[in-house]
Write a protein that binds this DNA or RNA. Structure first.
Lengths: 194, 194
DNA sequence: TAATTTAATGAACAAGCGTTCAAAAGCAAA
DNA sequence: TTTGCTTTTGAACGCTTGTTCATTAAATTA
């Protein structure tokens, strides 16, 4: 009994999500039709509704999965010095985001296409992630390692700067990811120290 | 003869652009219908076509006007020390963008909804703006004022960081724009010096 | 092989899309 | 008041949208 009552195909389901991810990232949620997603999967539009209740859930599930992964993988070790925690965070953020350009693009561009309830959920996860960084900054200020006047502003500035990497970085380009991480860490380190 | 043959209303035209700007910024280009824009202006959809050949031109004209304004107002005085040119640039960028949240939002979010030709035009203007900053960084490196390994990366990092202000800054909030400018200048200055 | 469950089809739905255009309305000059 | 031009209307066009559902096909279990 490999197939349980009520279960759906374990092949088509992931392909639907993958197609939605690709197409949403390239064309934008509003501009991508269910028929276009179905065509990418090689199926008729009606079949998609075996795997998602509606188009909105398709978007929301992608964004929620991305944010949940992000939070689950974020390094977190308060026992380490703040400076090293910050370095770990910078390296992690750049690498994690470089690995998932489509997810990142959607997470930043399609917020306004979420329903009010769904938006609140994603926004909360985003804030949780920001809080991880701000905690590090506050620890560094407390220990005297960082010279930061307003940890909230610096948090947002660092995240904006790091996420900006995704607008230009391409694997196999002029710079390796190691070099990118090193350069950004150099800027961040200098910006938060006296 | 206040009205010249072939001219269009000088009242409705600007209102159409203003409505398109507002609605595109709030809902996204693809999700905003011509009928919605018309309703915002208080007119029927057909009337819009007295002021724009099509929806695409409405978007393109808004973005082009924004980028042209940006470039026209960017401070540029190579005779000043690089450090002061950079400070001027940072202050200008933050203030200019804070004044035009809708235009900025559209300019960053709706690039993919431009036709290929229109995209090339906007992309070129964006690159021109980046080059302004990179010129300042190169001058500072040449004069020994800046310690920057890769001016291209630092250019993109600074612009991403500064533009990020628009995601959270609201007039009348916790911080004045002067304070925001001061904090960001502090970070940028430290990041580009040894 | 027969019975049962799951997955996909393909047509249909009401609604909305960008755009066009003949007709009507509004206004300035003569 | 009449003439001529500008602007708006309102209907219509062909097409696409998200979603539903009875039917068919396929695969699994018995």
């Amino acid at each position: 009994m490999a197939r349980t009552t009520g279960s759906h195909s374990d092949i088509t389901g992931p392909r639907v999500r993958a197609a939605a991810l690709r197409l949403f990232a390239r064309g934008g949620y509003a501009a991508v039709s269910m028929r276009a997603i179905a065509a990418e999967v090689g199926v008729q539009a009606g079949a998609l509704y075996n795997y998602t209740p509606d188009k909105q859930s398709l978007l929301f599930d992608l964004m929620q999965a991305h944010m949940t992964d992000l939070l689950a993988e974020t390094p977190h070790d308060p026992s380490r010095p703040a400076m090293q925690q910050l370095q770990d965070f910078v390296a992690f953020h750049i690498r994690f985001h470089a690995d998932r350009p489509d997810e990142v693009f959607i997470a930043y561009m399609e917020l306004r296409n979420l329903t009010e309830e769904n938006f609140a959920v994603i926004e909360r996860l985003r804030r949780d992630y920001e809080d991880r960084l701000e905690s590090i900054l506050r620890a560094g200020v407390a220990s005297g390692d960082f010279a930061v006047a307003d940890t909230k502003i610096v948090t947002l500035a660092i995240i904006a700067m790091l996420t900006g990497v995704n607008t230009w970085y391409r694997a196999g380009g002029r710079l390796s990811l190691d070099e990118v991480v090193a350069q950004y860490w150099d800027m961040v380190r200098k910006a938060v120290t006296a």
